[in-house]
Design a binder for these strands. Sequence first.
DNA 1: GCAAGGTC
Length: 681
Amino acid sequence: MPGKILCVAEKPSIAKAVAGHLSGGQYQTANTGSTYIKNYSFTFDFGPPWGNCNAVMTCVSGHLTKLDFGPEFNDWNYPPPEKLFDGPVHVTIDEDNKAVSTNIERLARGSRALFIWTDCDREGEYIGSEVRQEALKGNNRLEIKRARFSNIERAHVIRAAKHPIDLDERQVDAVAVRIELDLRIGYAFTRFQTTTLRALGGPLGDATISYGSCQFPTLGFVVDRYFRVKSFVPEPFWGIRVTHKRDDINVVFTWARNRLFDRATVIILFERCIAAKTARVTKVQEKPTSKWKPLPLTTVELQKVASRLLRMTSQQAMTIAESLYNKGFISYPRTETDRFDKGMNLMALVEKQTQDNRWGAFAQNLVNGAFKQPREGRHDDKAHPPIHPIAYCAPTGLRPEEGRLYEFITRRFLACCSEDAKGQATDIELEYGDEIFHTRGVIVLERNYLNVYPYENWTNSTMLPNFMLGERLEPTEAMITDGQTCAPGYLTEPDLIALMDANGIGTDATMAEHIAKVKGRNYVFTRPRAGGGGGRSRGFNDGEGEGAEAPTGREARGGRGGRRGGAGGGRGSEGGTGGVEEFIPSTLGVALVEGYDRMGLETSLSKPFLRKELEQRLKAICEGRVSRGEVMRESVRQYKSVFLESKERVELLKAVRQLSLCLFLFCYVSWPGHRVCGTVN
DNA sequence: GCAAGGTC
């Protein structure tokens, strides 16, 4: 044999799966000093120039190293926190990673080459560089390669093993910058905020007032919505509604202009309608319509749905998903990908579900020919497939909440593999005076995926009577309706996740942690949404793969007669009712955000802009447009200047002895009409 | 005692 090849994956599941494929199942397993990690030995023909080689496959467990300040920075007061922006930092290996790194170092000694099998995302590239570092300690003549793979299908993995590439140093650099900046900025501001606040005594005497580049924007979203709700001023609007009774059916026609905010105009337009006496049918159109099946499941979507329909917090959902993953029932639960790789054998996965007594018959029907390739979303992290069941699990084998999540994931998967729901829509348009009105009737013809996916629904609208194109009719009733815009609701967890996602705050794996963090720090709290919750249409994008902008502005609620036209046509209603938790900032949370916002909104630490800018700079590093050093210097300069300005303000306030007037940090002036919300303890 | 990112 021409020499041994050492393969290292990012986590045990990948090591095992890859070893299985490359060895054809013929491998020897050896324990290591780490409980979770095993070494798999086998032979494999890596192709030229390697040929048939002995190989050992092992792994790490996420990041191997840690960045930290030395003991000279242990004291929070001295050296002063601004020194954390340029003080020396060191790479260390945690105690629980010692065994992992010595395993790699030892295996590297007898190897000719290292093949890195970490996930093909930015963090994975960096973890690959950590592995390289350790391996080179054992053998500095080691040749370093990297396997490029986006799923663990057999053929794909074998191809990756035979066509390795090099580590992408730019991605490694980008992550190195992220790690160092998060550390410096997080520590500096956390120490500054905490020590400043504690000096004030009171109820916050021993609280930790942490700052983080993700937790603060998360808090910022909650505060922002809070003020939008509090400062909302309803605006009245008016509309026109026409009804016509035929064959004992009351058909409601809605106004093409929907509503106007000027009453006099509406009255004039309405009078022209009345003056016309009759309306003319200008369009009668029947056409097929469909309700699209859902997209393949991503982590963000899983978290949103879990809190909306399954009554779990996003963090609970992730914990449960991880346990299902570790038991081998579902695929890797942290993914941004909403399209299945063409090569994946989805039918085999569907087949495994045929034995279930809830959805087995549906799955069998797919196997028998009803199977349809899933829709393809626009996201692909090139590292993991969408979340899907990989083994069947009977409900008795799971805890109740695991069962509910497994059921959702499975039904979602089966829905993806079936046909859109089909219906027939009838659109009728009236011209009345100078105004246009329409109505729509929908008949659901085939429910298809809806039969396995009870989380969505689609129902027939009221049956429409026949109308003839060109006919004139006298409306049974025409009236002016009125209503007023109503305040948006406080943020819910799905809203918050959507905002974080849209603004690049955190990753699929960490968003739930940031939300838990701002709760744990008493920056925000949740409470059940008051007032039943049923009446308000949130207009929330249901994850159809479009941009995930969460609802922000005002929404209208009709007053008398202000209902939207035609029940069918669009999206159906969702199954979840009531029990929605809403996010409210605490006094402390508001004070923190206000304090930083007062220094300028574009650079406020509570806003997502700085983090977004950093993300763009990291991307620039990955594209080779700028160096790691330049980004590091510029970002440190930027954050340090915000830091020094904050510090100056505090000093100023101390000097003029106004501290008793300011809640903390900077001058927090009471918002007009703003009642301090919640308590800190 | 502080971050965010991996992962068990």
